[in-house]
Design a protein around this nucleic acid. Structure first.
Lengths: 198, 198
DNA sequence: TCACGTCTCTACCATTTGGTAGACAAATCT
DNA sequence: AGATTTGTCTACCAAATGGTAGAGACGTGA
């Protein structure tokens, strides 16, 4: 019998813990406890801790790619609307699965091999985004600037906003459903203003 | 004899390690090795690991506050210039001391007590920023929006851009002096465009 | 000189870490 | 039925962790 359910439960739980507490501070025992299983069961499904990390990164990339690809394909010719759709798409996991962006953001703390692993999974979308921004700038439909750096700025803004509610709270913001809608509204306005051609 | 130098060397080194590798993944032994001293020396100067973390957060807050306060007081009346000055001020440590913003960004991974400790240190500046943004919006000299959330968005954009060169590299950016200047230029343009009154 | 405070060290300790070896039960195949 | 594969477990282990206890080197004031 091919029992995938344990494997998937481990992946899901690990994603949540890695994403919220940081990869480096979550032990196999922590994950095992949360799943309701022994550490050795994790090591049965995944060769090592490092192997688990790569698998979780894949899992996260899958989840994110689906969302983003759908938004990119969504219709409407106007680039500001299109970028807006992607921003909303990336912001959705912030509400539904906060750990997802938190994990992606962990990339800075990982070592080279895991970084490259994640890069390999995301490079295609990244390239599409940059070339899309480039072409729309050439048509004068976006504020002209360096498209690579702009893509990075957009990523930082959206992911930072989504992964650091604690910072927003420091600025006086209230963490509830209404607050999140407010943040999303402001985020969209911010990005729109930043991209407007002049 | 009041020998502060060891204490300070520990603080500086810990700030660098915490900021670049993440608080949770740096052990007292790691710090001790980097300082060239034994772990027990650290525990002589700081009551515990947790005490060290608070002290390092203070150290970081001090360093950041000096820079930001100076920028806030600097330069003309025009709000876009003023915000620009703060952005540049916060961006400077990105080049000179990359760990500084990296540590501040670690706040999401810390536990409540450390979060509140850091908040206490930064709340004054934060409030000044928010009320400044508010008053300038009322005068119609900044794009009207929620000033609290805007402050959070600005923080996310600047700190994310500064602390995630790896992400920028994924977007095709090259990490050298010229690349950094380019990022700063784009960042300033991005923020300016996002704040422009309409 | 002697006593004292300052600073860093060696020697431990209990706990936790990632990981190996292999027992054992249930399901599957022949 | 018997043999084999699959999945989870218990029992370990060496290394690393934060932390305690206390020795000893050093300068300073009496």
């Amino acid at each position: 019998m091919v029992n995938g359910s344990t494997r998937i439960r481990i992946l899901d739980t690990a994603l949540d813990l890695f994403g919220t507490r940081g990869v480096g501070t979550v032990s196999l025992d922590d994950i095992a406890d949360a799943v309701g299983v022994r550490k050795q069961t994790i090591l049965y499904w995944f060769k090592s801790r490092s192997g688990l990390i790569d698998a979780v990164l894949d899992h996260a990339a899958d989840e994110l790619l689906v969302v983003v690809e759908a938004a990119i394909r969504s219709r409407g010719d106007e680039p500001l609307d299109r970028v807006d759709a992607v921003v909303c798409a990336v912001f959705r996991p912030v509400v539904r699965r906060p750990a997802l962006l938190g994990l992606i953001r962990e990339v800075t703390r990982l070592d080279e091999s895991h970084i490259n692993h994640l890069r390999g999974r995301l490079s295609a979308v990244v390239e599409r985004c940059v070339s899309y921004l480039t072409s729309e700038m050439e048509k004068g439909r976006l504020r002209t600037c360096d498209p690579m750096v702009l893509a990075g700025l957009l990523y930082s803004t959206v992911s930072g906003t989504g992964t650091e509610p604690i910072v927003l709270e420091t600025f006086g913001w209230e963490p509830n459903a209404a607050g999140l809608r407010q943040v999303r509204r402001e985020l969209r306005g911010f990005v729109r203003a930043a991209l407007q051609p002049n």
